[in-house]
């Protein structure tokens, strides 16, 4: 079974409260070198059949409109190169 990976991140200019709070705890606990944390989401989408350009386009459509909120998030999409069969 093939997999397509979609990663969704808050846009760089958008405040990421979660990342900020995590960074704050790291700094409090003495990890002074941590300058920033941003938190995103990773989706692993299993697909039936080989990963073609058409299929990637189809999933990209979903990534752009469903998995991410284009107003506040960006996404990256790529074929999983992990466990080949």
């Amino acid at each position: 079974m093939e997999k397509i990976i979609v990663e969704v991140m808050p846009k760089p200019e958008i405040l990421d409260p979660q990342g900020r709070a995590i960074q704050g705890v790291f700094n409090r606990d003495g990890h002074e070198l941590v300058l920033g944390v941003r938190q995103g989401k990773r989706f692993e989408i299993s697909v039936n059949g080989p990963i073609t350009d058409e299929l990637l386009d189809e999933i990209e459509e979903l990534a752009a409109n469903v998995l991410s909120n284009p107003i506040i998030e960006t996404y990256a999409i790529y074929a999983d190169e992990g466990d080949g069969e």
């Binding site: 808050p10 846009k11 760089p12 200019e13 958008i14 405040l15 990421d16 409260p17 107003i71 506040i72």
Partner: peptide, 8 residues
């Protein structure tokens, strides 16, 4: 690139 919405 300025946010069009504010995140609370």
């Amino acid at each position: 690139a300025r946010p069009s919405v504010q995140v609370g």
